[in-house]
Design a protein around this nucleic acid. Structure first.
Lengths: 339, 339
DNA sequence: GTGAAAGCGCTAACAC
DNA sequence: GTGTTAGCGCTTTCAC
């Protein structure tokens, strides 16, 4: 049988509640007693019984707020959030969603302010990639509310941690895949969603750096920016493919893949052009099946939803901060048969 | 507040223990009362509180036995087992390992017999791929002990489920990868560990079938069997590569990769020969880094360790069987940068 | 067949 | 600063 608070109390000759105060660093115990209890607890190798803690914890009825835009990515992340919820709801924890518009910084800020007054127990946020938010998060944190960012980070905001993909690594993986399928030689063009989104920028950098250092016979001929707009993406892709009519490969860091695919198919390049892109949304799956896309790199959105909830829970329940500030999710290579 | 047994008891005008019996299908309640309580519970949407159950469950002190050979795979699986243990030990569950010799059917059988007398609560086993074991498992199951097989299955043995990779799918993925890197044409040879190990046979079949149906320009010239023996593997690989001196690709379903790699390097084929293999053990990682192996397909051994423990726990704690008999772990494509 | 009561380990409210 | 006490939800024992 494991050692319990009750036993420690008996040995120390004090009440259980006193031991409880010592164990949890609560006030109201004399230094003398505190030291004695600590010594005994240590000596006996006391470890809190999770079930006992949970029993008392569950009627705190805490709520974790999820602040995120309503986009493809967060739809997938939600699966992970719900999975985590199943595991922590027994502990009296519930979740409330606050869906914002994708690039609306002001809305996210006002949501955060509201959550302070609502006294939520914790917040998980997929922030707009905008520095203005940083101060709002800082404010939340200063009110004692733990915050975890996911998918996109907000450095120096005081958040507990960031959960997301290692985009630089993902870019390097993409480079290797591209090199393999174009047999280490030829011209490659890059389509990027935005030069100012940190994650996409890193996907580009990782790719370009590895190509330049390891594959002298591969030439990156052009980088095109689409601002994730459908019409622009289609038009610019079409222009690019016509302008560069001897491309071996095309690398897309982000943006609407359906439009890129449309342009490739329209020009009859499905077989000859090798394509590497990101994520595993329905439109990408279709392109994989059609043979337009060769490889896509997934960032495990489910884990990006699941982990933040568990991190916040761990903080609330055990008062433990995560070991690393950056928890990276896997870089998953997918092709047609491995969806 | 969620509805509790206490509330149901009050409404039904019976004792809590009576409600408990009804909820858990225990005997000792009249049909009339049973029906009434059931109706009320249903009506109120009663769901057992996990923490409450756990509190009572934890002093049963159940033990789950893990029966497996001590090989590369199970070393990795153990990480997942320990992770699962962390989650279930609060419920009073502990784990005992029984490491057997790899191809020793008799040892596994006698271990199983012993575990019956020891009255363990559940067993997870990586069985020898041998039909003789089937009856031993059946016997265990007939004693009311739940069994889960992992990594390799034992069909028709009465086990709760099997947790492992979908080897046929893994073979198909390998085929696509190979086709991509040899540009859909050329000669390919296959090295297989054993023609009688179910998993390896399926990896071969999935590969060959997809190549034949989708890639008419790829020819599978030879299949070599190594019996997972180091010396044989090295010698046969060497012979194969010398005999077939215009191979585009080499596909290895299993067996000691270090020896295969040695032969490839010795003949100076590192750059020209494309190689796809399985698993992510240290020797394979080294070959990836050296550029000898292009892709390896991982089967997530950690999940294969983790899931069985959770399945057995779920069965013991909630009396729930898994939904599917075959729980497949992911088919993970890995290359140099994505380890 | 049914009910009363104790107990699992921890926390919190409150009296001293 | 310290102890007493009740209570969280469920299971189990035992008396009736």
């Amino acid at each position: 049988m494991r050692v319990t608070i009750k036993q420690i109390a008996e040995i120390a000759g004090v009440a259980r509640s006193t031991v409880d105060k010592v164990i949890n660093d609560r006030p109201g115990v004399s230094d003398e007693v505190r030291d004695r209890v600590r010594y005994i607890a240590n000596d006996l190798g006391y470890e809190a019984n999770i079930i006992g803690k949970a029993l008392a914890f569950q009627n705190k009825q805490l709520v974790i707020a999820v602040v995120m835009p309503n986009i493809d990515f967060t739809v997938a992340a939600r699966v992970g959030i719900e999975k985590a919820l199943q595991e922590v709801k027994a502990f009296g924890i519930s979740i409330e969603y606050f869906l914002t518009k994708n690039y609306d910084t002001a809305q996210q800020i006002s949501t955060l302010d509201y959550l302070i007054t609502k006294k939520v127990a914790g917040i998980m946020i997929r922030p707009v990639d905008d520095i203005e938010l940083r101060d709002a998060v800082r404010n939340v944190v200063s009110h004692g509310i733990p915050v975890v960012t996911f998918n996109s980070d907000l450095v120096d905001s005081g958040r507990l941690c960031f959960v997301g993909q290692d985009s630089l690594k993902a870019g390097r993986v993409a480079a290797n895949l591209m090199a393999k399928i174009i047999n280490n030689r030829g011209k490659v063009a890059i389509i990027t969603g935005s030069m100012s989104l940190a994650a996409l920028e890193l996907r580009l950098e990782g790719f370009a750096t590895l190509i330049q250092s390891n594959f002298p016979m591969i030439e990156i001929v052009e980088v095109v920016e689409t601002h994730e707009n459908k019409i622009i993406t289609f038009q610019k892709t079409l222009d690019l493919l016509q302008r560069q009519n001897d491309l071996a490969g095309l690398y897309i860091t982000g943006g609407p893949m359906a439009e890129v695919g449309k342009a490739i198919k329209m020009l009859g390049l499905t077989k000859s052009l090798k394509v590497v892109c990101f994520d595993l949304y329905p439109e990408v799956i279709e392109l994989l099946n059609e043979g337009v896309v060769d490889f896509t790199i997934d960032q495990d959105p489910i884990a990006q939803g699941y982990i933040p909830i568990k991190v916040i829970f761990e903080y609330l329940f055990n008062n433990k901060k995560p070991e690393q500030e950056f928890i990276s999710t896997t870089v998953e290579i997918r092709e047609k048969e491995s969806l």
